[in-house]
Simulated scan of single mutants.
Amino acid sequence: MMASIDTSADRSGTTAGLLPIMAAVFAGFLLIGLALPVLPLHLHQELGFGPFAVGLVTGSQFVASLLSRIGAGNYADGRGGKRAVVIGLVAAALAGLIYLGSLALLDRPIASATALFAGRAVLGAAESFIITGGVAWGLALAGGRNSGKVIAWVGTAMFAALAIGAPIGSALYTAGGFAAIALATFVLPLATLLATLPMRGANAAGGTARQSWMSVAQAVWLPGVAAAFSSLGYGAILSFAALLFAERGWQPVWLPFTAYAASLIVARLCFGHLPDRLGGARVATIFVVVEAAGLLLIWLAAEPMLAVVGAGLAGLGYSLVYPGLGAEAVSHLPSSSRGLAMGLYTVFLDLALGFGSPALGLVAASAGLQFVFLAVAAAALPAFAIALMLGRKASGARGL
């Protein structure tokens, strides 16, 4: 696929090349979405654990993702993004088996929660290979000048799956309990694997020497730190929005995350090209303010629809913060190192969610669930400062 985005034909070709990759990522993440609104409820209502334990089990996925990102990026650079996606789907099916095993331990809550912790960890490694491989696959087909669009659109497939998975998961949980979620987590990745294998892959990048780990890390770390601070809002929605709704008797409990994800999806489909056109840091500077405003609205909400509007506003804001900063992270790197770059960049997301989720659980336990959203709104301030600095640096390099 040509890297140029100067003509409408090139833009159409880029979009067509991304669609099958988006389909694979969508199907792979649908199984993750199924558990989002119900795993905290299962841990709290069925096993009797409090907010800190919920945050700990939820966060195990992100810690495992953190530990596997660099390996996933190196694998995608060396063997190709499609193969990385395949590895991720196999691991996801294994996580489903572990979920099923946790059900045999319901009379021993600690053992059952430990199995769920392990299953979430395996799923975290699977997610790492699926999304890192999917982005590397898309970058290999679409070219570096479309990096913002690739990150935004592949991420859109992920969030679409999470948004659709939330109500489906709630329905499955109502009909068959957590056993239905566990079975689906085993079956869906196997079906996705069969559909992915015939897809056209892309050869691993050649011709340009791959840069060292340290040189890639030097290019990525500052956008990554900003992404980490801005991603805490995503973690708050993911882990505690359903609990906030359940605590206040608001229904349905999956609605804030679905509003968040739906807003993010629409924004990325409509405006995903903006980081490539206007500059990733410049776009991130604007949208992180929108994200913070939405999180503050959830904190202040006295009725469910106000919280839902806040979640949607937060999703709109985050929609282009992450791809905008990601475009900055890979903009000066050769194609042979972009998989590693995206793996390293996503490590900062994992750090924020893996360690931020338990920390936010402590905030919820000590101050109340609503104060979680005040804390993550405040965390957007350093993200804004870093994005502003990166934007000014990029403008200065262009002589603007």
Rank of each mutant, 00 (worst) to 15 (best):
V122Y: 11
L30Y: 02
N74G: 07
P304D: 10
A125H: 04
L320P: 03
A261D: 06
S68L: 13
L141K: 13
A236N: 13
P304W: 11
L344S: 00
G71V: 13
V122M: 11
A242V: 14
M158P: 00
V220W: 09
F287M: 14
L188C: 01
R210V: 02
G396F: 02
I131K: 01
A301L: 07
R200V: 04
L43Y: 03
G101R: 10
I5N: 08
A359C: 09
A27N: 01
V363E: 10
A397G: 00
Y345V: 01
R69H: 06
T174I: 04
M22S: 10
P358H: 07
D77L: 05
V266S: 12
L123V: 05
A341K: 00
W153P: 01
L139T: 12
V347F: 02
R120I: 05
A35I: 10
L313E: 07
A292V: 14
G165W: 11
S147D: 05
G224S: 03
A311H: 09
L193C: 03
L269T: 03
L344D: 01
A84E: 13
F229Q: 08
V347K: 00
R69P: 05
W213R: 12
L369C: 10
S112P: 13
A365S: 15
L19W: 12
G169Y: 12
K149A: 05
L141P: 00
R108T: 15
G71E: 05
L162R: 05
L190M: 14
Y234E: 15
T156I: 08
L269V: 15
A241C: 08
F186K: 05
P358G: 09
L274T: 02
F117C: 06
T15Q: 08
Y99H: 13
L353F: 02
N146W: 00
L103D: 10
M214A: 12
Y99T: 12
I70F: 15
L360V: 09
R120T: 12
G59L: 10
G71C: 03
E247A: 14
M1H: 02
A202L: 06
L116S: 06
G143V: 08
A35T: 14
G71A: 14
L369K: 08
G96H: 12
Y260R: 06
A394T: 07
V253P: 04
T192K: 02
F287K: 00
L47D: 14
G235R: 10
A387W: 11
I98V: 15
A160N: 03
Q61E: 13
R248W: 08
L141H: 13
I21C: 07
E127T: 09
S335W: 00
A9C: 00
S357E: 15
L297E: 07
A302F: 01
N203L: 14
A385W: 12
F159L: 13
G233M: 09
L47I: 14
A241R: 09
L353I: 11
F29I: 04
S60Y: 07
L374K: 04
G176S: 03
K393L: 09
G33M: 03
F49T: 13
L116P: 06
V135I: 15
F229L: 09
G143H: 05
G317N: 11
A379E: 12
L116A: 03
R248K: 15
